[in-house]
Amino acid sequence: EEWNVSVWGKRRAFTEHVEKLAELVSEKTDGEFTMNISYGGLSKNTENLDGISIGAFEMAQFCAGYHEDKNPTITVLELPFLGVRNLEEEVAVSHMIYDHPAVQEDLARWNAKLLMTSPMPQYNIVGTGDPRSTVEDFEGMRVRATGGLGEAFRAVGAVPTSVPSNEAYNAMDSNVVDTVAFAQHAHLSFRTIDQATWWTANLNPGTVNCPIVVNMDAYEGLSDEHREALDSSVDEAIEYYVDNYQNNVLKQWDQILEEKNVTKVEFSEEELQKFREATQGIADQWIEEKSAQGIPAQELYDMVKAKLAEMHGM
């Protein structure tokens, strides 16, 4: 049994759980069940769900925000200022949502079964010029942010600009944008950190949600032994991913902030509350729109908020 797995870019922290999963599954089955992980060779990243639906490959990674209409239910996890603080919390809320029948039904349209998430840190922003630490400071700020996150910044008076990620460095260099919102590993690899003088350490405006899915027929066609090997490896793979991200990327991030003397902007609780209030309309609108499509949107949203409150001990 050999599965083709479609991911994109280069091997990096963001794909380490897939690599680990392949390794574990192969070990557990004595090399009978292997995975051939292809970085962009099998599909374009925004077409991975299509490939799964066709049956061209058996496993794939994608990000919900790339194409909201393909996966309206999962985008609940990309709403702004949900209050996710770290990767463990991101994993917990994601997997809870993936287990919901409405979400599974949504993905079943693509003949896809959700296997696990690829937890991404919050898209905190790096910026040039004077640090901005209040809602008022965001007025007129040109920020590179796409999709829902862009909407969130628009809600607080900023001007979101769509620049492709590989042009983000130049866009900052030429003041096309003042700030860029990325996860830390992307700030590092697209070198936006090299331009930055400040970073919002705790703004936590939101993130993208990028699940790993498998083709249902392929999954059901596995022998019991192979399926068991796959299922039982998920938790370990995720754990490996989170460890790796924290011990490598985030540690390197802290070092670079220090080396380059980048100001860490910490927002006060009142300021954060103002951000939440200013962007609540986006969540409300999401709920309204998705409910109209017959999705239990309110329920999904409430589940996420309740889970986070529980984890924050509130």
Binding site: K44, E47, D50, I54, A56
Partner: peptide
Amino acid sequence: WALGVAVKTAGQVPHSKIASQ
């Protein structure tokens, strides 16, 4: 089955590769 998967895989390529900034 193989024909269908191949045709649909190939059929994605023109649009998906060309629609780029």
